[in-house]
Design a protein around this nucleic acid. Structure first.
Lengths: 193, 193
DNA sequence: TTTTAATTGAAATGATCATTTCAAAATTAC
DNA sequence: GTAATTTTGAAATGATCATTTCAATTAAAA
């Protein structure tokens, strides 16, 4: 029977994610990935297929990593208002931790590759649908609880929030002033009340 | 005395801008630029120095191109409210015209290169300052005219609008539904009133 | 027309790109 | 321990990367 895969796939993905996050897809070379993962070149191709398919795995890894953080915060929220606050609080923390101005891997990739790679385009469409569905659900519940207004539909507010989060992520690349960012978030959520 | 530069520098910049906009900085090769501009390789280096310095000129070209469009719309605005509407209307048009999902060159570049190239970082800092100063001026006037509220300072609203514009540009990459986008913009500006 | 200096074309530079190849090493089942 | 099978290492692949080189060409000034 065969020799089995020895390395920790998640650890390799973690390290690959860091490189792609810092350098972007086109800025990352296979040599960068070999160096970062301490994996052999052939092992990478053997296990991940190609640079693009490895990157797609990295995107999913990053997505579920951020999603996991979000879920762990949403557990402690008891109403729609708390949930929206928890979501923005998470992104705020992400921004403040990101001291090398990388921004969000998914936002970066969306702007770098959506118009070039069909597989990335598909990922981004699905990511947008997921995000908006999640936000719509929260807003809808908030409206039922009379915490949020009904000036717009939950769907419309969900698109607004999705857009606002992307803007916050872009703004947070250069602006790390917590007071400014908290005030920005406060203004962003105000329309819901 | 020397033979003088024969080509139209603005036309060359225009064509280089298109390539960089579609493929991004790292995705664009010198060969791409040679093909797009119909200039000789040595002429490009002779006239623009390097890929990076040409790209910096492209960024400025794009910046003043968008700025020009904005100015020509702002002329017809008679109060702060009209001005904010004109600005968002311009970005909406940009999004609807952009049928190949390129997004905004400056936003794309910010996410691709700010953390890697000091010259790009400097450009982005200055761009942000310019944008926020312009927005702050409009908001301040709107507040003086009692068109906008004074719940937040003009500076705080300016950061909010700057962030919202970036979010709108990112959202517009995949969502080209005019009704959705108009509703989104309506929600974005609501906080000012 | 001759001089002068920059532009141009085409080829060469050497580095780096993603990917492949393949024999040697490693590990599990028998 | 031997056989089976995959991972691994290191080198090679051929393409493409940004940039340089330099002789030929061009055009303005003398």
């Amino acid at each position: 029977m065969p020799k089995v895969e020895t390395f920790d796939r998640n650890q390799v993905l973690q390290r690959a994610t860091e490189v792609f996050h810092i350098k972007g897809y086109n800025g990352t070379s296979m040599q960068d990935l070999v160096d970062a993962t301490a994996l052999n070149r052939s092992s990478i191709y053997n296990s991940f297929g190609s640079k693009l398919s490895m990157f797609l795995e990295v995107l999913s890894y990053y997505q579920s990593s951020v999603g996991g953080q979000m879920d762990s915060r949403l557990i402690h929220a008891h109403n729609a208002s708390d949930m929206i606050n928890a979501i923005f609080e998470m992104y705020l923390d992400e921004i403040l931790i990101d001291d090398d101005k990388k921004g969000c891997l998914i936002v970066n990739c969306k702007s770098e590759m959506t118009n070039q790679e069909p597989l990335i385009n598909a990922f981004m469409e699905k990511n947008q649908d997921r995000m908006i569905a999640m936000l719509e659900d929260i807003v809808y519940n908030g409206q039922m609880e009379k915490i949020f207004n009904q000036d717009q539909t939950a769907s419309q507010y969900a698109l607004y929030l999705f857009s606002s989060i992307q803007g916050l992520r872009m703004t947070g690349i250069l602006n790390k002033n917590e007071e400014d960012l908290r005030n920005l978030i406060q203004n962003l959520v105000k329309v819901l009340y």
